[in-house]
Structures are given as C-alpha cells and as structure tokens.
Design a protein around this nucleic acid. Structure first.
Length: 820
RNA sequence: GGGGAUGUGGUGGAAUUGGUAGACACGCUAGCCUUAGGAGCUAGUGCCCUUGCGGCGUGAAGGUUCAAGUCCUUUCAUCCCCACCA
C-alpha cells in the first residue's frame, strides 16, 4: 500500500490547478459574488514564516468554502513593493531596488504557491510596476484637483550626516537612530493629503462596519474628535488675546493660570523684559527635545516658566498668571490651555510644583476630583448646577458676550505623503516659476522612475531624483516655459489605498478600473489581516474610497465590509518571531521535513481560534500530519477492499448493519463542519473531522468495508469537508475514489435530517442541582414518562430517599432536576 | 492614565438560549502488532481520599438561580494598542 507522501502529490496538483485555471474569477452574475482579500504583502528579504502563512490560510479557507458553496469568488494576490528596505539594500549593494524586489517577489510567490492557496494569479499586481503606479499618480492628481493635496512648509527633523529627514520616531535622545549624530530641525516643504476634511465621515461611518470593536475604537481614538470651546483670555495691560481650547468650561471659575506651548507665537510678545532671558532659555531647551523625550517626561515631571504677564479670566475678570510649559502641545487645539489644577491632574501637578492656587469648583460624583462630573460650587451665578448643564449655559453666555465659540478639534493630522526617497511613485507635479505647482497632464502619465547612478539622498533635502537633470528639467504644461519636476516620491501607503480596486480590473490601461467591474466585485466582503494596519492603511484606504465616491467613480463609501484580524503566531517560547531573534519557522523547512503544505495549513488553524494568538508547537505539527495520514490510510484500505471484491455478496448496502452508523457519522460531521466553517470555527471544524475519522476507524474495526456505498459516500464527503483546509490530499484521494472533476469545483455536501435523529436519548438526572445519574428513554417520550423513569431509577431513588419532591425541573429531552 | 483582549487538566484548547465541564489534539501510561517507520492499532489519563451509589474543581471573593465556565458586583494577573489631545 502506498504511504502518504505530501511531496509526491502537492506539486503535482498545484501545477494541474494552475493549468486548468480553476481559481480564475470572471464577472459571472449567475452566482453571488464574494471578494475575499488578504493584505498584499511587502516582499521583504526575509522569507515568510508560519505567522504570515496563517493569514493566507484563513483567507484561503474562506475563499474555498464559499467557492464550493456556489459563490463566484475573487481571491487575488499582489505585491506592495515600494519601500525603504529595498532602497537601503540598493544603496548598500549599488544595484537597483528593482533587482532586490524581483528576487524577493519570486521567493514569496513560490512560498505562496507551495502552500496551495487558491489565488487567481492572472490578476497578480505589483505596486512598483509603472502600469500600476501610473494610476496611483492619477489618483494623486485627482486629490490635487479636488483641493485635497497641498504643499506646506513645516519643521522636520534632519540628519546632517545621513542627509535625510527623519520621522519623530527615528530620533532618539536628540540623535539620529542610524548614525548616532545629533539631528537638527529644518524647514522643508512637504506634500499633505487633507484627510482631516474627511474626519467626521471616517468617524461616523465606522458605525455600520462589521469590524472588531477594538479596531473601530483605535480608529475613533486616532481621529480623536472632541467637541469643546475656544475661549478668549485678554492679556492684562496688553493688546493680545490668548485663545484657549477646552472641553471643561464648567470649571471656568477654577482657572488659576494659563499655559502657552513653547512654540506659541504669542510667547515673544507677551513675555515681560524681566522674564525674557529665562523664557528664551526654556523655549530653546524645549525645541531641542524630541517629542519622544517630551512624552517620557509626561510621567515624571512637568516643567515651565512664568512669562511675567497676566490674563483676564472672562468668567470673573480675575487676573491670572500666564506660564509657558512643554506639556502643552502646539499641534493640538490652539496651543494654549487654561489651568484648572483642582480638576485636571496635569494642571494639578504643575500647580503643586510652582505653588499656584488650587481652587475647587465641583463637588464631584466620583472619588477623584479629576476629569469627573458633579455639582458646581464657588462659581458665582452658576452655583448648584450640574457640570453638564453649566457647560452649555456658560458657553451660551460667553458666545453672547463675544468671548467664546463652540469648536470641534481632532487629533488626526493631515497625511504627510511626500518622501525624499528613490523607491516610490514619483509625485506627478511640475513646479513652474510662473504657474506654481501644476498637475502633469493625464496623457503624460506615468511619470516613470528614472535609472539613477546612486540611490543615496542628495543632501539638500531632496530625493536622489533631484540629481537627474533629464528628469528634473521639463516644461510647464500650462505656459510652456522652463519648469522643474517634483522630485519627492509618495508614501507607500498611497499605493495600498486603492489596490483592492485594481484587482477587479488589473490589466486596464485606459483607466484605474472599469466602473462595471468595480461595481461587480467591490466592496471587499472579507478582508483578512493583522491588527497592525488598524490606523494607517485601513484609515487611508477608507479616505481614498470616500474621495472616489465623491468623484463619482464608485458606488460605495466603505471599501471593506467585513474585517477579520487573525491572531499572531508566536515562536514556541512565546516570543514574537523575527529574523533578528533567529526564531522564525518557515513553511519551506517544514515541507522539506516531509510534513507537507496540508499539515501546515491544518496546524495553522487547529492550534487555536483563528483570531487569537498562539505559540507554534512542533509536537502539534505531528498530530496534524497523523490525522491526514489516517485519512490517507483509511481511503487506501477502502480502495484495496473494493478492488479485491471484498464485501460483495449481492446484498444492498442499506441492508447491512454498518450502513447506518457510517451514514450517521458522515451526516453529523457535514452539519457540524458546515456550521463551524461558516462561523469561522476552524479549529472545531477540524476537530469534528478528526472525530469522523475516529468513528470510521471504529466501524471498520467492527465491520470491515461492508456497505461499500456508504463508505464511498462517507469518504467522499469527508474529503469535501477537508478540501478547504487540506486541498492537496483531498484532491488526490477524491480522484482515487473515482471522481472525474476537481474536488475544489464540486458542490459542498449537505446533511440529511433523517440520519441525525436517534431512537433513544440520554436524559441527565439531577437531585438538588447535582448530577446523580442518567436514564435512556425513547426519543420523543413524554415529560411524564421521562420524569417517572428518572424518579424510579434505583440510584436516583436512593438519593431522594422518600423525601418529598418539592419541584421538578424538566428540560425537554435533556435533563430532569428534582428539588427535594 | 485611556482603550481593547485573555485567564478552564501536565500542554494547546472544547462547551447554542444558563442545563452531563474538559470535545479534539499534544504529552504520558499500558497492551497488541510489524513491510522497524517520524511507525501503526487498541485502551486509559482533571484533582483528592483509590472507603462511596464519595468529595473538590473553569484566576480570586461575593451574589442571582432548581441549576453558573456562561449572568451581576468587586478584585487580581497577563498580553496588545494609544498615550501630557486640555
């Protein structure tokens, strides 16, 4: 008998499926469509490990299950291939990033192929292909035309050695994370997308999405809408007015100071001559601190200096000191706050340190005075009001008096998308001395990345493209005069903000996608990926989708109807898998060891609930392989017996004793697996398949392969239920059983109720809520019959011991509880 | 500090509306068998006193109920994300 050797069957079927194109999707309206998508990967130098594989396995099971259940499934794959790692590789090795990416892509694709995922490879896309980024550029111009892309000069961290800007996160202790040299601030003109204009819609539309609450909450917090008031504090004996933002104007009478951010424009004018030197020193120190350092200080300490000036609280006309402190952020609200030390913990710490008056104005509901509601005290005419009511009242009064207005603030900032990097999609803008920033005409797209000598940054805050004269020098599309091309490239997240639409029509060279194809496939029904995209990609893609909707390009406003976040696979020791820790487990090596893709796929899902993290287990792998091996062996034995003519005595299968138990087991599993896979209970679905195999082994031990028709049915059904999880072995055995067409285009089995009913049922009997026995009764027996049977059971009778039964609880067909 | 998630045997994990806790698998134990393989098959395996038709058991403590892993209150631990957002 042939043994189960995955290496002999897996590559064979992968080639066959590809040749027969069984996973190719077409716009066939006779079946309901289903768009199943996993985030398209960045083909990094490090190969995929079993953690990545889990993501694709979940998607593949969903795709295959729906395909077999009569859906027209789109399940595509592509490459998100622009980005810094490839560029660094290029700088180091003096080769084009193209070379590295092509190698990595090849490796990744081979890794995906060997897992037997059912992708429609005819729709493969690559974000670094000019045919693709032509349309990324086209979308940039769409945003530009709609006033949603703009340039603005702002202060950025700059490393004079690496000659590049750095993100805030890349500055550690005032030094560059790569070379360790001190960084400077440099004013640089950058491109932004006006995502803030969509903040309200991005927030409100979360409501109807079938996403996990945690991701929705993360987006809500990231957008950070807060409704409050801007209140004007007149400076005493000076012209200036300081506008502050607050959400707690019910504590207006508790204000005992005002704080400006060190970057606040009024700092210079408001500071008195006596305080000038100390304020300037403080501002200078604050400027040299990175945001990281500022945050680190948050827990420990608050620092600040007095400006020497006073402001007038519009509520009670008191003069209160104006301070400068770096715990106030210039980037949020107005860059100035009112200090209420009695009811804000930060203000409290500050006031304590600098001996500023603390004035309680609320009797709070909670134990803590900070950030809670209550009844207003020490607040003039507002005394006795609820804090919630006072907020409204005082704001109305202030607005009437012309000292305040209601405002909404957001934490979300506009999306800085320009990068001074080579390996990205060039921003399709031409700068003309006369006409300013001008869009490249559509018929000149794509603006292709030119070949360059060196991938190093140029040193003047521009990308390496700035050194390519033939690229930079051009003519203005509007006036025809000499002009220069924009040399910055786009953030990689621009490419991934629309790729899901390109899959609907990947080879279109007239437009990013045809309207009818987008209408047919989109939105994505199942989007499967890690939670790491929670606030970046998932927010950006929603933003672009809404812009496209507003432009009339599509008919939906949300790209991903359902979002599913898989749990992470950790190394056996519970640590994150990473190349640097040298603890990654790659599917390639497992396949080499002889486990096969099918065992790995089973393991990825059987290890635990798909949306919870789990530690990879080497031993567990063996169990999954054993399960498939048992399946293999059972089918081989069945085929052997069929060939030898065993169990052919002329009688029909139905008349044989083993027929019914075989069918019962099979139908029970069909029902359970179907329900489980539908509800994404992959681990329990696999457990039921294991149970079925165990059942069949027991029946075989008792009856051999009598009832061959029942066996044929049970084994065929088992394989179909197994097909989404283990596509290779199920296909191989399916064909061995004599089926002509691929199991993956077969119709999912359905259970028959008549095989699920039992003649007798076991009813559990409790006395006073404790399990004391069980009785077997005919199914459908009356309550009276069952209760009587339970009461007269010898064991139960002993427990009741003549005591009167006060109450009898009966759960139909399940349980009797005597309360004595 | 805010938000989210998770706590069940030696291990990973199962348990519709509250209704037999521990499915399935790993590990372990015993037996069988052999084409000696990464074997395979069969049985057993929550804990305790192996006295029973016994007692205890779902992070901890209370509560509701005939009945709680599941519902309510309090609390502890671990993980993840955001974090001076006024």
């Amino acid at each position: 008998m042939q043994r189960y050797k995955p290496k002999d069957i897996e590559p064979k079927w992968q080639a066959k499926w590809e040749a027969d194109r069984i996973y190719q999707a077409s716009e066939n309206p006779s079946k309901p469509k289903r768009y199943v998508l996993e985030y398209f990967p960045y083909p990094s130098g490090a190969a995929m490990h079993v953690g990545h594989v889990r993501n694709y396995t979940i998607g593949d099971v969903v795709a295959r299950f729906n395909r077999m259940n009569g859906h027209n499934v789109l399940h595509p794959m592509g490459w998100d291939a622009f980005g810094l790692p490839a560029e660094n590789y290029a700088i180091k090795n003096k080769v084009s990033p193209r070379v590295a990416i092509d190698e990595n892509t090849k490796r990744f694709k081979q890794q995906l192929m060997q897992m037997g995922f059912s992708y429609d490879w005819s729709r493969e896309i690559d974000s670094t292909d000019p045919k693709y980024y032509k349309w990324t550029q086209w979308f940039f111009l769409l945003l530009f035309r709609r006033g949603l892309a703009y340039q603005q000069e702002s202060l950025q961290w700059w490393c004079p050695v690496d000659k590049t800007v750095l993100a805030n996160e890349q500055v550690e202790d005032g030094k560059c994370w790569r070379c360790g040299n001190p960084v400077e601030k440099k004013a640089l003109k950058q491109w932004f997308f006006k995502i803030t204009e969509y903040a309200d819609r991005l927030l409100d539309d979360l409501e109807d999405l079938n996403w996990s609450e945690s991701i929705k909450t993360m987006q809500r917090n990231w957008i950070g809408r807060s409704i409050g008031a801007e209140i004007a504090f007149r400076a005493k004996d000076q012209e200036e007015t300081i506008s502050i933002f607050t959400t707690r104007h019910d504590t207006q009478y508790g204000v005992t100071f005002v704080v400006l951010s060190p970057e606040h424009p009024l700092v210079k004018t408001i500071t008195t001559p006596e305080q000038k030197s100390v304020v300037e020193a403080y501002v200078k120190e604050a400027q040299s601190k990175s945001d990281i350092e500022r945050q680190a200080n948050a827990d420990k300490d608050k620092t600040g200096v007095f400006t020497g000036s006073y402001a007038i609280n519009p509520a009670n006309n008191e003069a209160i000191p104006i301070w400068i402190a770096d715990y106030v952020l210039m980037g949020y609200g107005t860059g100035a706050v009112m200090g209420v030390p009695a009811h804000d913990d930060r203000d409290h710490v500050f006031a304590k340190k600098y001996d500023i008056e603390i004035r309680q104005v609320l009797e709070t509901d909670e134990d803590s005075n900070f950030h809670s509601e209550g009844v207003v005290i020490n607040s003039g005419k507002y005394n006795g009001m609820r804090s919630e009511a006072m907020r409204e009242k005082i704001l109305t009064d202030f607005v009437k008096a012309g000292v305040a207005k209601e405002v909404v603030n957001y934490k979300i900032r506009d999306w800085l998308i320009s990068r001074q990097r080579y390996w990205g999609a060039p921003i399709p803008i031409i700068h003309c001395p006369k006409d300013g920033a001008v869009a490249v005409p559509d018929d000149q797209l794509p603006i292709e990345l030119p070949e360059v000598e060196s991938y190093e940054p140029s040193g003047d805050g521009r990308s390496p493209l700035a050194k390519v004269k033939e690229f930079v020098n051009t003519t203005c599309p509007r006036c025809g005069g000499p002009a220069e091309r924009e040399t910055d490239t786009m953030d990689g997240f621009a490419c991934s903000s629309w790729y899901f639409l390109r899959f609907a029509d990947p080879h279109n060279d007239k437009e990013p996608f045809a309207r009818d194809k987008a209408d047919f496939w989109l939105p994505v029904d199942d989007y499967i990926g890690g939670a790491e995209h929670a606030v970046m990609h998932l927010l950006y893609a929603r933003f672009w989708t809404k812009v496209m909707y507003d432009e009339g390009l599509i008919e939906f406003e949300e790209p991903f109807t359902t979002l599913r976040n898989q749990g992470m696979i950790l190394a056996p020791d519970g640590q994150k898998m990473s190349k640097s820790k040298n603890n990654t487990i790659e599917p390639d090596s497992l396949i080499d060891q002889g486990y096969g893709a099918d065992s790995i796929r089973i393991m990825e899902l059987f290890i635990g609930p798909w949306n919870q993290s789990a530690n990879w287990s080497v031993e567990g792998m063996g169990g999954c392989f054993r399960f498939l091996q048992r399946t293999w062996t059972l089918v081989q034995e069945y085929l052997g017996s069929r060939q030898s003519g065993h169990a052919k005595d002329g009688s029909t299968s139905e008349s044989l004793e083993s027929d019914l138990p075989i069918r019962k087991s099979a139908h029970r599993s069909i029902k359970k697996v179907t329900e489980d896979v539908h509800d994404l209970g992959f681990n329990t679905a696999i457990a039921s398949l294991m149970e079925l195999i165990n059942d069949l082994y027991k029946i075989k031990a008792d009856y051999e392969f009598a009832a061959p028709e029942a066996w044929q049915f049970a084994l065929s059904s088992l394989l179909q239920l197994l097909a989404p999880f283990a596509p290779h072995i199920s296909e191989e055995l399916w064909r061995q059983l004599g089926h002509e067409d691929s199991i993956h285009v077969s119709t999912w089995p359905t259970h028959e109720e008549k095989y699920l009913s039992e003649d007798t049922v076991i009813v559990v009997v409790q006395v006073n809520g404790k399990l004391r026995g069980q009785v077997r009764v005919a199914s459908g027996a009356s309550k009276e019959t069952i209760v009587e049977a339970a009461r007269s059971d010898s064991k139960i009778a002993r427990y009741l011991d003549g005591k009167p039964v006060r109450k009898t609880i009966y759960v139909a067909g399940k349980l009797v509880n005597f309360v004595a």
